[in-house]
């Protein structure tokens, strides 16, 4: 699946998107996999309460299942307007 990062999450991880092969069942499991990769991921995902997630461009929760999902995006709370 495609994993996208925005705002300071993108800056901390150092890339806007990447293709990730995963067998994670939920978003939270995917986060754990990413955190285990490298320090920059661990830093970006240190506080999940400071993050939001979208699955196929719809806001979702961290316990949401990943089955059938093609695009996961992680970002801080939005600041539009």
């Amino acid at each position: 699946m495609e994993v996208l990062y925005f705002a300071w999450v993108r800056e901390r991880i150092g890339l806007p998107k990447e293709r990730v092969e995963t067998s994670a069942v939920t978003v939270a499991e995917l986060v754990e996999e990413l955190k285990a990769r490298e320090e920059r991921y661990a830093a970006a995902f240190a506080d999940l309460s400071a993050l939001r997630v979208a699955l196929d461009q719809e806001l979702a929760e961290f316990d949401a299942p990943l089955a059938g999902v093609r695009e996961v995006a992680f970002f801080p709370p939005m600041t539009g307007g």
């Binding site: 925005f6 705002a7 300071w8 979208a54 806001l59 995006a73 970002f75 801080p76 709370p77 939005m78 600041t79 539009g80 307007g81």
Partner: peptide, 20 residues
């Protein structure tokens, strides 16, 4: 649209520093 539309603002200061 302030809290549910995917926009993020960053302030870029004159000294070159920036803050989300």
């Amino acid at each position: 649209l302030k809290s549910r539309a995917p926009f993020w603002k960053k302030e870029i200061l004159r000294d070159g520093s920036a803050d989300w």
